[in-house]
Computed example of a mutant assay.
Amino acid sequence: MSILRKRLSEFDDVLDADEIDTVSLSKICFHGIPDEPGGLRPLCWKLLLNYLPPIKSNWIETLKRKRELYNTFIEDLIVMPGESNTDDKERVDVTLHDHPLNLNPDSKWQTYFKDNEVLLQIDKDVRRLCPDISFFQQGTDYPCQKIVNANGQRLHHRVQHTVLKSANVERKGLGVTKQIAVSVRKATEDYAPLSEGGEAHWEVLERILFLYAKLNPGQGYVQGMNEIVGPIYHAFACDPDPTWRKHAEADTFFCFTNLMAEIRDFFIKTLDEAEFGINSMMSKLTNQVRANDPDIWLRLHQQELCPQYYSFRWLTLLLSQEFPLPDVMRIWDSLFADENRFSFLIHICCAMILLLRDQLLAGDFATNVKLLQNFPSMDIQIVLSKAATLAGKTL
């Protein structure tokens, strides 16, 4: 029996059971979820991110309830002042006794203007997502009919923006995106909205992130969240089973929400010093480098090359900007299956540094900063195998 067939058989044994053994599922997913036949990764991620319950007979009810709830979010939270809120029974003017100059905090117009400040950043970010592939610029087969058939409720209509030239955007940096010159340029309309009746995948992500920000006002939207939701949506929207694929938007929203509940400390500045805050994570990484290769640690320390210069982005965005999308998804198989919830991320980051040992020991400050901020192309299995060794595991 081939290695692939043996691995597929292992997944079948776990996934065909009436009750999923989540421990066994995590163990086999940690070693990577086979890309073929398609459909395994979307299902496994839904289970690993606690969206689907282990008992399979509960799936239908859970999915129905969650997807209906998501539709309610769309109906309740994406309604513009001046529009009518319509259902099958009544038509109500939502702006009765309200107007754009109303300073009352309860004014729908005040909420609308405040939301647009957040929406402007989301709109920019989703338009620059994965410019090296065309997926997010393409149209979904399942546009949200409540939106595309309702004049004026498409979110990108609410903000004025300059359409970014996708070829000029480098997927590096959290916060300010660096602009670079490239030899091959894509047309500016690559990220243009599709015509009425259609939606590009980036437009779907814009809605997911906007709803997340609305429903989580204590955190809101933080630049970089687009890089977290993108791979999840890509996996679900490419599910070969249309009965799953048509609900990719709602399923992505809840899986993203569950994931953010675990890593949200990375995105909240006031929690930087918390146990799972970003500063604590960077300290753990530095300590692990020192323990495994004192020479590299000393070299970086002498150069005052702080981990904030490179690992802030690595850790916060779960390495989503350091590798091509297929490699990111392979990394996330292990991260989502990590029994210690993202402790393996530290091992991966440490492995990345150790694998650059010769270059780092030979390079000066400027060279090493550039090297770490632009991790060189490398077989992802080499990185993961090194990380597993550091963690005392086999991969």
Rank of each mutant, 00 (worst) to 15 (best):
P307H: 08
W314S: 03
D272V: 01
D241S: 04
Y310E: 05
E262D: 10
Y233G: 04
P326R: 03
A337P: 01
I296R: 01
F323D: 01
R299A: 14
A291K: 07
Y309I: 12
E273W: 05
M329T: 06
N340I: 02
W332T: 00
A250E: 04
F344R: 06
C238N: 12
K269R: 06
E275T: 08
I348L: 14
S343Q: 12
M260D: 07
F256K: 00
A261G: 09
F336C: 04
G277F: 12
A250G: 12
S311H: 03
Q321H: 12
F344S: 09
I263W: 07
K284N: 09
Q303G: 02
R330L: 15
Q303D: 09
H347G: 04
I278S: 04
R264D: 14
H347L: 08
E304G: 01
H301S: 08
F266W: 01
L300P: 00
P294R: 06
I263A: 05
Q308D: 14
P324L: 11
M329R: 09
S343V: 04
D295L: 14
F323I: 02
A291V: 07
F256R: 00
P294D: 05
F336Q: 06
L285H: 05
H234S: 04
Q288K: 14
S334A: 15
E322L: 06
T270Y: 12
E249C: 11
L298V: 00
N287A: 15
H347D: 15
E304V: 02
D333S: 08
W297M: 03
N292S: 13
L317V: 09
F336T: 00
Q302H: 11
T252I: 10
E273T: 05
V289R: 03
C306Q: 09
G277E: 08
V289T: 02
K246C: 12
F266A: 02
F256I: 01
A235V: 15
F312Y: 14
T257D: 15
C255R: 05
L345D: 03
R245F: 06
L285Y: 10
H234R: 07
Y310P: 01
E275A: 13
E273D: 13
F276K: 03
H301M: 07
N279K: 12
H347C: 15
L300W: 03
Q303P: 00
L318I: 10
H347R: 10
I296M: 06
A250Q: 02
E304T: 04
M260H: 08
L298Q: 11
G230E: 07
A235S: 14
A250Y: 08
D239K: 00
R341D: 10
C306A: 11
E322N: 11
I278P: 00
P324V: 09
C306F: 13
F336S: 07
P294S: 08
E262A: 09
R313F: 02
F266C: 04
G277W: 13
A261D: 12
Q303S: 06
Y309F: 15
Q302L: 13
R330A: 12
F267V: 00
P326Y: 08
Q288E: 14
D327I: 00
D272G: 07
F236D: 03
T286N: 14
N279R: 11
H301W: 08
T316W: 11
Q302C: 06
F276T: 07
C255D: 10
